[in-house]
């Protein structure tokens, strides 16, 4: 469904021209729940920006159902870490925002929005103002808003990063429910290994140079436990791969005495 071939993105940072992705290949099938995992600054967000259509100056081919991605489209809905809800609209108006061009009747638009508010358990708050509800609820509204346009693929940019533990766990279950009930294709970007292990049906790991270093299918049924043998095994594997690559990098860097590269984030 989503096919990425030889992706490269050049961009300027602090006067250096940096090349991201280095001929990145990825192919996503319908119904997969993919986690893109990588340390901070590895280009995960740039990757999502390309998929969302915000960034079109890439080389290589990025196709969704054979169509080149060059501009934003409701086929690819995105959810941001900081929710990005429209504060001048209430909850249901936010959720039905993207339906304006598709459904002309106001009432029908709200009916469709209500269905997705039900999915995230927020029907009783449909008339609430955005500032009246908690961060966790706001993120659920943002997810409902993205799902309401019935996208082919749902893009999530570290959507749980700004939440407290309790809300995060809640939303993780919510995402699993959405994935199993709607068979929604999901591409989820995160720097948390545990989150990826809990949610994904497939994990793609990027290193600091935004190269793909690992691509694993996860077999365990949801809901998963963090100490499940498969999870433990894969966690070790991921840390190993990232550390190895890091060592190799530092050696190379020392040899070439080049600077300006990203530093590995130990928080993952």
């Amino acid at each position: 469904m989503l096919k990425i071939d030889k992706l490269n993105l050049k961009f300027k940072a602090n006067g250096f021209i940096k090349n991201l992705f280095n001929d990145f290949d990825l192919s996503v099938d319908k119904g997969e729940f993919i986690c893109i995992l990588g340390p901070s600054g590895c280009g995960k967000s740039s990757f999502l920006n390309i998929l969302a259509g915000f960034e079109k100056n890439y080389t290589g081919s990025v196709l969704l159902n054979g169509e080149k991605i060059l501009k934003p489209d409701i086929k690819r809905a995105i959810v941001f870490q900081d929710y990005a809800l429209f504060p001048w609209l209430n909850v249901i108006e936010n959720v039905s925002f993207g339906l304006k061009n598709r459904i002309s009747n106001h009432q029908e638009r709200f009916m469709q929005a209500i269905r997705y508010l039900e999915l995230v358990d927020l029907v009783e708050h449909s008339r609430a103002r955005i500032h009246e509800i908690s961060g966790g609820m706001q993120q659920r509204v943002a997810i409902a808003r993205a799902l309401a346009v019935q996208p082919e693929i749902l893009l999530l940019d570290e959507p749980l990063g700004a939440l407290d533990d309790w809300s995060r766990r809640n939303l993780q279950n919510e995402l699993i429910k959405i994935w199993t009930e709607l068979k929604q294709t999901i591409l989820f970007v995160t720097h948390s290994v545990d989150e990826a292990l809990l949610l994904a049906s497939r994990i793609v790991v990027m290193n600091v140079n935004s190269e793909k270093v690992l691509d694993i299918q996860l077999k365990t049924e949801h809901p998963r436990k963090i100490d499940h043998p498969e999870s433990v095994k894969i966690r070790l594997l991921i840390k190993d791969v990232l550390n190895q690559k890091l060592k190799k990098n530092t050696q190379e860097n020392a040899a070439q005495s080049s600077s300006g590269d990203n530093i590995f984030d130990p928080s993952i």
């Binding site: 409701i74 995105i78 941001f80 809800l85 429209f86 925002f97 993207g98």
Partner: peptide, 29 residues
């Protein structure tokens, strides 16, 4: 205006005139 609001609007199908009418004007009100 938070840049993410504009991006969210665009990915939900707002471009050019619609973007002004439905995002930019209400955001600056």
């Amino acid at each position: 205006i938070p840049p993410k609001l504009i991006l969210a609007g665009r990915s939900l199908g707002c471009e050019s005139f619609d973007l002004y009418k439905r995002i930019i004007i209400p955001a600056i009100l």
